[in-house]
Design a protein around this nucleic acid. Structure first.
Lengths: 230, 230
DNA sequence: TCAAAAGTGTTTTATATACACCCATGT
DNA sequence: ACATGGGTGTATATAAAACACTTTTGA
């Protein structure tokens, strides 16, 4: 087959599934309300067209910032959705990304240009435009799978966190309860958490010790064949 | 941002990284020789443009068949490559797929229209066009990761295989030797292999028992939360 | 009878699981 | 003093790893 460019081209977009964890340890997803047809006034994943002079990830980050004000977050390619009819007007192929963000540092509605953006519970999202329910489901499955063997969960936590916060996070994502003592044993034995001198504040009970994730140590161990596993 | 289609569009292609295992248990990849510029006469992954009336996977299967004659194989989406400059002439975004095929049933050069297609050792591929080295590397990493927790390895084996064949396959992909007794114990305990009455033939030593993978049983166990793990 | 791979169990070690009470703090 | 979550250890069960010889078959 000749290598030429005379074919009609599908439109190419990116979509972002950004997850965050709220103070009640509920998993949330960042959505925008569409201002124009199709699916006008419906909620959708932030995203838009890929420009000719930017990479796919750049496009995803740009759209995310333009539409929600969120930037500088963990972002990874998820899957590319290209079935016919996923957009009612034209052939549109969308490269989906998923992102993780700690909501304590991204208060809802903090963004300047984001009056149409909001966080929704992943467990009960609103009606979503296009095939975005499917994209969301794919992202959730990916998150659940990946969180167990890669230390991406820390992206959802503040820089300094307690072991209970971390445990609750894993319980939320995996949808199961975990044994406190066993969880702590396992997590601490990996040696990826730096214990801080500081302590939790503003709680009506014994203050918990704070930890932070040691990324440098993780990368160092990873080179030696270490496997994160929870 | 308005939802419109007036932007210039990147070209959209698919590329296929099809792996096979030869009789010496070497991992091979299916390549084609380019007949036109750029990279004329160089080897490349089979692939081509996505048409407006076909899904991404359909496009991958069509191109694979057109260029190599290979069809009906296991094929999964790998990653979408969209960096600037990956094609010297134009902005081209490529959705890569990886495939698995048992070479015993796909003898090299069997395809009608495939005079420019050939299998190469993954360990020592020829010079590859575009960013295809990177795509190949990504596919290999994916295969190595996925083969341990999903029973995709069977796609590389004939329908009826011996335990030694299966072990050698895993040793090849994972790049490490495995203990024969432990491997058999683990594999048989999963209960996914149906032992056949038949036996290996044409070997100059004791003939090994043949097994086949029980897909139905796997899917049934999977629903109950069973985890394939090797 | 030789070569070549098939087939088979037990022991040791490491990891996962189950489980309950006292501690520190703020109200 | 009470309510709330923080913090800790041991015993048991399960799984992983290490390891070597006999059997079958065709050449």
């Amino acid at each position: 087959m000749p290598y030429t460019y005379e074919y009609p081209r599908p439109a190419l977009t990116v979509d972002c599934v950004v997850f965050g964890l709220d103070d009640q340890n509920a998993l949330k997803v960042l959505l925008i309300q569409r201002r124009i047809p199709p699916f006008q006034d419906q909620w959708a994943l932030p995203g838009g067209f890929v420009r000719m002079d930017e990479s796919l990830e750049d496009a995803a980050r740009r759209e995310l910032q333009e539409e929600t004000g969120v930037k500088g977050v963990f972002l990874e390619q998820l899957y590319t959705f290209g079935d016919l009819g996923r957009d009612p007007r034209d052939r549109v192929v969308s490269v989906a990304y998923y992102g993780l963000v700690n909501l304590t540092e991204y208060p809802i509605q903090a963004a300047t240009d984001a009056r149409d953006a909001a966080w929704f519970p992943v467990a009960s999202p609103p009606y979503l435009a296009f095939d975005h329910p499917q994209i969301l489901a794919t992202a959730l499955t990916r998150l659940q799978g990946k969180v167990r063997y890669q230390p991406i969960g820390f992206e959802l936590l503040p820089a300094k966190f307690t072991l209970t916060q971390m445990q609750k996070l894993y319980e939320t994502i995996l949808g199961q309860t975990l044994d406190k003592r066993n969880f702590r044993k396992k997590v601490l034995k990996m040696g990826l958490l730096t214990p801080l001198a500081e302590v939790q504040m503003g709680v009506a009970h014994r203050a918990a010790k704070l930890y932070q994730f040691d990324l440098a140590k993780y990368q160092q161990l990873k080179e030696k064949g270490f496997n994160f596993e929870l």
